[in-house]
């Protein structure tokens, strides 16, 4: 089969297929029902439904431009910052439809934290970076409580020992990998229930990547994590379930092991075996 044929075949299959695999889980934390996302005229996410379970790591993979980041940004309504972006459908977190106009995005984003592709620490001290969230949400009653939150979060992010002597140094003075773990600590500090990670390792070197992956693995004890990645090995290493996106469609979802060894859908198989990416 040559490439053009493959693309034609792909389009045909997408428009005529439903998600393969079981989208439901036993104890869902987030329930996504028939989400569509449009940028102006362009349809970026086409009718996606999926459950996200408690304390699981869900990896979302797929070729670039497949809409996995857009989908991730629906989960804490970060898409609101893009003016032309319109989201419809239903998205339940704790039995509340967070896509409802009336939902206050501020507590939502505290509950559903986000770590970005490029480490983006605030141009402030390491301490201030982590303390910022608790401060604006009023989580600490005094300096002692605040210190405790900050130290704990840094500890959980595996950064405390590396920075404990220079908490006043600017966050931007850290190395790339440390910066990303600082961002994770910043997110943890507001004690979210869900953490969204948008290709958190794409800007990091392999050693820093390994550290962050290790961290993700540990974090799943306490948090639900949804991670977007373009590195399949990473998905295989850190996640329990994997969802495969293609051109705005959720093509297949299932236990990570199964997706990588015996994919059901032809597209998933093509992607896994490296025919496009």
């Amino acid at each position: 089969m040559n490439n053009d044929d493959l693309i034609k075949e792909t389009e045909f299959q997408i428009n005529n297929s439903e998600t393969v695999g079981n989208i439901h889980v036993e104890d869902p934390r987030i329930i996504v029902k028939n989400i569509n996302v449009r940028y102006g005229e362009k349809l970026a996410i086409n009718n996606v439904s999926i459950d996200i379970g408690k304390n699981e790591v869900l990896a979302m993979i797929g070729p670039s431009g497949c809409g996995k980041s857009t989908f991730l940004r629906c989960l804490n309504r970060m898409n609101d910052t893009i003016e032309s972006c319109v989201v419809d459908g239903e998205l339940y977190l704790d039995n509340e439809n967070i896509l409802d106009e009336k939902t206050d995005v501020v507590p939502l984003r505290a509950k559903v934290g986000m770590v970005f592709q490029k480490p983006n620490p605030f141009p402030k001290s390491i301490y201030e970076n982590v303390a910022y969230g608790p401060k604006i949400h009023g989580l600490a009653k005094n300096k002692i409580e605040l210190d405790e939150i900050v130290f704990n979060s840094l500890e959980k992010a595996g950064l405390f020992n590396e920075v404990k002597d220079r908490l006043d140094a600017p966050g931007t003075s850290l190395s790339g990998g440390q910066q990303q773990r600082l961002c994770i600590a910043r997110t943890i500090a507001v004690s979210p229930e869900v953490i969204l990670m948008d290709e958190p390792c794409s800007a990091l070197d392999p050693i820093a990547t390994a550290k962050v992956e290790e961290l993700i693995y540990e974090l799943k004890e306490n948090f639900t994590i949804v991670i977007v990645t373009h590195a399949m090995q990473q998905a295989a290493r850190v996640s329990q379930r994997t969802a495969y996106f293609h051109l705005g469609n959720l093509v297949e979802v299932g236990p990570t092991q199964k997706i990588f060894t015996t994919p059901q859908h032809k597209l998933t198989e093509s992607y896994i075996t490296g025919r496009f990416g």
Binding site: L108, F116, N120, I136
Partner: peptide, 25 residues
């Protein structure tokens, strides 16, 4: 850089907080 504002929004700052605490300084 917009990433600074996004970071603030990501931890649940309101738009005004993100702008006044991070972009303006």
């Amino acid at each position: 850089p917009p990433s600074i504002k996004e970071g603030a929004l990501g931890v649940g700052a309101s738009k005004i907080q993100a702008v006044f605490h991070h972009v303006v300084p």
